[in-house]
């Protein structure tokens, strides 16, 4: 659908499914960017966005965040400091919405470098087969080529129906959870699949706490769809990304959601990155 629209970049996505919006009196609705859509539709719409951006995902991230997303991801991995310590069984990682694989590879690299851990396993799941293929492609090109520890699975993060209860030690989701139709369900599922003592780490766009930076940031956001058009020939998908960032709950609110899922959130609750443009949230299943 988005591909069809790409010839007329300024047309709003809204037209494509306006009938659904009118239908909201009969079914539950959710946000798709700044629009209200049927909950059942969001998954499909987000799917289209990511199918559309998959191949240009990385370069766009670099453009959108001016390269800073790499630092955020590094900080995220350092902060989690995950890996099997000497004398322990290997850990089981799961990276949700991790299609591009950078967090997954980063976590394993960190575990090896810091704890000499070459046994822990990694499951990369993504709801979007196109994004996942992108990750698999990268995996086949880097030092994890043919590494049996890494597996890729198409899974809906809200359900994770192929992941057993209490089977994972570290659950990460980076810049993915805001695309969930039901974020709380996603967090509850994370709680389900983690073992006691397991950690959930969420890296996500958040709310800027500095007025000046915020003004700059808001204006910068307005250009992102234009970059999207220029680089990936896709205006609407990037429009959606910007709006979904603005829709995402504030740090405190999201912290509350993690607690609601049953996690213990250690003080101070979250860590802002670059004035809160992004934030790291950590929760522990006890």
């Amino acid at each position: 659908m988005l591909k069809m629209l790409s010839g007329s970049p300024l047309r709003s996505l809204n037209t494509a499914y306006s009938t659904n919006v009118e239908d909201k009196s009969t079914s539950s609705t959710t946000h798709f960017g700044s629009k209200t859509v049927l909950a059942s539709e969001k998954e499909k719409l987000v799917g289209q966005v990511f199918s559309s951006v998959a191949s240009k995902y990385d370069i766009m991230n670099d453009v959108m965040s001016m390269g800073v997303h790499r630092l955020w991801k590094d900080e995220f991995i350092r902060r989690l400091d995950a890996g099997a310590r000497p004398g322990s069984r290997p850990l089981d990682f799961i990276d949700v919405a991790g299609g591009s694989g950078d967090i997954a590879f980063g976590l394993l690299d960190h575990a090896k470098a810091k704890f000499n851990d070459t046994k822990s396993t990694m499951t990369v799941v993504d709801i979007n087969p196109d994004m996942l293929r992108e990750g698999e492609k990268r995996c086949s090109e880097n030092h994890y080529k043919n590494d049996p520890r890494i597996q890729f699975l198409v899974q809906n993060g809200e359900v994770l129906d192929k992941i057993e209860d209490n089977s994972k030690d570290v659950y990460t989701v980076s810049f993915g959870i805001r695309n969930f139709t039901n974020i709380q369900a996603g967090l509850n599922t994370a709680y389900r699949v983690l073992r006691p003592g397991g950690v959930i780490g969420v890296l996500e766009f958040s709310k800027v706490d500095n007025v000046i930076v915020d003004t700059f940031y808001q204006n910068w956001s307005k250009f992102l769809p234009i970059f999207g058009q220029a680089i990936a020939n896709d205006y609407d998908s990037y429009q959606y990304l910007v709006e979904s960032i603005q829709r995402f709950p504030k740090q405190e609110e999201f912290k509350g959601m993690i607690q609601k899922a049953g996690f213990y959130v250690p003080e101070p609750g979250y860590q802002n990155l670059t004035f809160g443009i992004a934030a790291i949230h950590i929760g522990i299943k006890l």
Binding site: L80, R85, P196, G197, G198, V199
Partner: peptide
């Protein structure tokens, strides 16, 4: 040493992943 924290969390039956708490 970190080892002391590790041993402690193991006695509680927690996964080693909980070491993220003690960055």
């Amino acid at each position: 040493q970190h080892k002391a924290i590790l041993e402690s969390s193991r006695t509680f039956g927690y996964s080693d992943a909980i070491q993220s708490l003690f960055h």
